[in-house]
Amino acid sequence: MTHSEPRAGQSAARGLNDKSIRNLFIFPTIAFLIIFNIFPLLFSLYTSFTDFRASTNAPANWVGLENYSYLLTNEFIWRNFTITAKYVLISVTGQVVVGFGLAMLLNRYMPFKGLITTLLLLPMMLSMAVVGLFWKLLYDPNFGIINHSLGLGKFEWLANPDMALWAVAITDIWMWSPFVMLLSLAGLSAVPKHLYEAAEIDRAGTFYTFFRITLPLVAPILMIAIIFRTMEAFKTFDLAYILSSQPTTELIAIRLYKMAFLEWQTGLSSAFAYIVLVMVVGITMIYVKYLNKVKER
């Protein structure tokens, strides 16, 4: 007894060894990932090849590639893809132009620069649902401030099928340009000042300086912003869902939600989700490849 007591004391003092600590951190994480990520991913891959409907007690029947072929040949699904592509293009382009432009303006001396930057960042800190409801009022043809300010009378932003997608994209641009601005600002402030001084000595013009110095050096970080914003824009749901009910604003995320949780076509919606996943991964890979090229220059 007299010997065992000090040994127990030593063991307690030593505590857990490195391996135990590693396992203690890793195993719960792996278990969590398997239960909440890997298993649902594999299960949904399986259901994507079945006619499973979660709302019934009927067993799932294997249908092979039927769900995928149905989705890829369905005119409405293609319309959803086209709308989404158009939305991503308008929204991300707008955010890059506005965000980068704001970053250029803020990348110089101005009074209250910190306060202005903070204020410009406010939109992206708001909830999507709140922004959607708020902009719905701004767009209102009867009392909306947008029509009033622009002198557009009773112009219908959201009720007009041709304008609705633009209206949603404008809202998204308003909300997320600050994100691009923030990253661009970080990139711009990292550009060595001596390069501009050298360009000035060489009497390089503004455009030349921008395209030969600023843009190439900011491009990698701008590319990261574009990757994030493209992925986010691709899966936009709340903003479009709240703002408009037009078929011309039915993005793939909205269609997927309806298919999965209103129609309970679980198998079909799983296949749809996989198609979207492959597309997002594909687009991201193209961007990443381009990003690596830009970095190598």
Binding site: F76, P161, Q246, K258, L262
Partner: peptide, 23 residues
């Protein structure tokens, strides 16, 4: 019927463009 939501979706996709979108 159990597939009522699919019927509703189809109806919304067809009726709305005609009524609101003038298509």
């Amino acid at each position: 019927v159990p597939e009522f939501a699919e019927l509703l979706t189809a109806a919304n996709q067809r009726l709305y463009p005609f009524i609101v979108g003038d298509e």
